[in-house]
Write a protein that binds this DNA or RNA. Structure first.
Lengths: 187, 187
DNA sequence: AGGTTCATGTAACCCGTTACATGATTTC
DNA sequence: GAAATCATGTAACGGGTTACATGAACCT
């Protein structure tokens, strides 16, 4: 079977927090910083149907009195497993080059699913991959700068800075997890 | 007719620099920081066919002696117009939220197509849109932080920092364009 | 002669986009 | 009772992904 789409994983992560309807998900994708995901019904409802067909979520119509009919979805045990396995995948160069958004999505639900220890491990792996990737970009820029127009050079510089910011963020976040761990063992 | 895909615009921009074959493009997408684009033949060759069907590029087989046959593509006048119009589009909130990559691609060929003045205008518009968008993210984080798990908070913080870095980059780049302009008028 | 690289393609599949459609419930 | 919102769907379309396929030229 195929891998789930990134939208499907976003849905699975949100359902992990609490049961929600398709419309609930659409509202989240429309009104929060998760608006990078589509809130189109033509994407959400088919995605939910696929998840259910694959046995990763279960749904039943809510039949409380006076309310509009809502189909509530919640993850199955298999769905939770699939979500966790996705989050625990090794971080590859390809992830860093082409799928940073997916990496951040994997991370954003980690506390609630695989726990703080795993989250910190994830950050360490991410920092390592970034620390190895960034120099290759800097090297390319240095070698090619003279042959590139100003806008091209600047565009590349922008990409590099973005990765550097992400590296600083991940190192800083690692510290925060360490601090919190200390606080917990003491209390 | 439909808009061209972002891959199609990347191709069009590269052909604007010099005539290239599908294989040339694949090598660029495989071996340079433009590797965010696919180098799959199943994407490149159909994209070139569509561009030709739409009259935006023209191709002819290179018939030099002793070489492997190569189909060289170059933009038509219409293709150049379409590329420039795409680059000159107004920057929207939606661009900043969902299509930053496309914005950077638009910018990266600007010197060679619409010129330095337009590039500087683009940066000003980008900085303005970012300066208006970032506070809404900060506000959301402040309001929701207490209801969010640590990893969720951090993921959002990462997104905000990325936008802040982009804003700093654009302001810095504006300065560089101003400096270069001064130098040119003086010389 | 055989392997590698060059070079160009095709076809099935998946899924997000866009647009349309329907009806119930709340609100004024 | 009209408009807005809630809520869930469907269908055509486009284009990237994956995998397969073919053959010429170059290298050893």
């Amino acid at each position: 079977m195929n891998d789930n789409s990134i939208l499907a994983y976003a849905v699975l992560g949100l359902l992990q927090q609490q049961p929600r309807s398709g419309y609930d998900l659409r509202k989240i994708f429309a009104n929060t910083p998760m608006r990078t995901f589509t809130d189109s019904p033509g994407a959400i409802y088919p995605a939910l149907q696929r998840l259910e067909k694959r046995g990763l979520v279960r749904s039943h119509v809510q039949e409380t009195s006076g309310l509009r009919r809502r189909r509530l979805f919640r993850p199955t045990v298999a769905g939770t497993v699939v979500l966790k396995n996705w989050q625990r995948r090794l971080i590859t160069r390809d992830d860093v080059v082409n799928h940073v958004d997916e990496l951040m999505l994997r991370f954003s639900f980690m506390d609630e699913t695989v726990g703080a220890r795993r989250a910190a491990q994830f950050l360490n792996a991410l920092a390592a991959e970034l620390a190895s990737y960034i120099p290759t970009l800097r090297q390319f820029l240095k070698a090619q700068a003279q042959h590139m127009p100003l806008s091209g050079r600047l565009a590349l510089e922008s990409g590099i800075r973005s990765y550097e910011t992400l590296l600083r963020w991940s190192r800083n976040s690692i510290k925060i997890y360490k601090k919190r761990k200390k606080g917990e063992t003491r209390s």
